[in-house]
């Protein structure tokens, strides 16, 4: 489990390098100009799905179990919500990704402008999200509900204090371990793919003045 700090280090260092020295490549590389109808379904469903999925992970892994108990949320209620909400979010992510991947083959204009990195990103996301959705919807309902809040949750939080409690992961089912491994590999890949645009969500836009004036570099009105 020693490679997780490495993944995060790659994410931060390579991300910083790209932002500072390859800044012009830091974009949301849209192909909407080539095709709109499939993108509308694929992109919207995927992006909203992954926002829900992110919030679900915060609720399941970052927020300790004790908080739920203190709030009076029973374990059965929590798992029902997690399976229903998480399953829906997971399905949205997977469906959105499949639509976007299909679109890349269906439309020659889009196909001509898809790079290897683009396919890698989509396929890797499908792998991670597909596994996650399978665990939430199928594993939980057939094999049995796995209480990750007692093992994966505390382990994940221990990563932030730089004192990982790897012992907690020994008993975790293999599917969950694979999901985590693939996810961390994906985090490390972020600076090298189009995924960097997630850090540029323009949340400050509603706060700024509608009209922007700027002077040329070095222009000084005092003269």
């Amino acid at each position: 489990m020693d490679h997780f700090p490495l993944c995060i280090t790659v994410l931060i260092v390579a991300g910083f390098y790209r932002f500072m020295f390859r800044g012009k490549s830091w974009v949301a590389p849209s192909t909407e100009i080539f095709e709109k109808r499939w993108l509308r379904i694929g992109s919207v469903v995927f992006h909203y799905g992954i926002i829900f999925a992110f919030m679900g992970h915060v609720m399941g892994v970052l927020i300790p179990m004790e908080v739920y108990h203190a709030l009076g949320v029973s374990d059965s209620l929590y798992h029902f919500m997690a399976i229903a909400g998480g399953g829906l979010a997971g399905l949205m992510v997977v469906i959105g990704l499949v639509v976007m991947l299909t679109r890349k083959f269906l439309f020659p204009r889009v196909h001509a402008h898809t790079t290897g990195g683009g396919y890698f990103t989509l396929l890797w996301l499908i792998l991670v999200a597909g596994l996650g959705t399978y665990m939430t919807l199928i594993y939980n309902t057939t094999v049995g509900e796995y209480e990750y809040r007692e093992s994966i949750g505390p382990w994940f939080r221990s990563l932030f204090t730089l004192s990982p409690r790897s012992d907690l992961m020994l008993e975790v089912p293999i599917l969950f371990k694979v999901h985590i491994l693939l996810s961390f590999a994906l985090f490390a890949a972020i600076p090298f793919t189009r995924l960097v645009h997630m850090f540029s969500l323009p949340v400050r836009y509603p706060m700024r003045a509608p009209q922007q004036y700027r002077s040329r570099d070095g222009f000084d009105k005092k003269y």
């Binding site: 590389p29 009209q211 700027r214 002077s215």
Partner: peptide, 20 residues
Amino acid sequence: YKRDEDGIVLVDQDACRGWR
């Protein structure tokens, strides 16, 4: 942005993220 000194409207290619 609109250039302060001559009013020409330009796109900052470093800041554009392609939201369209």
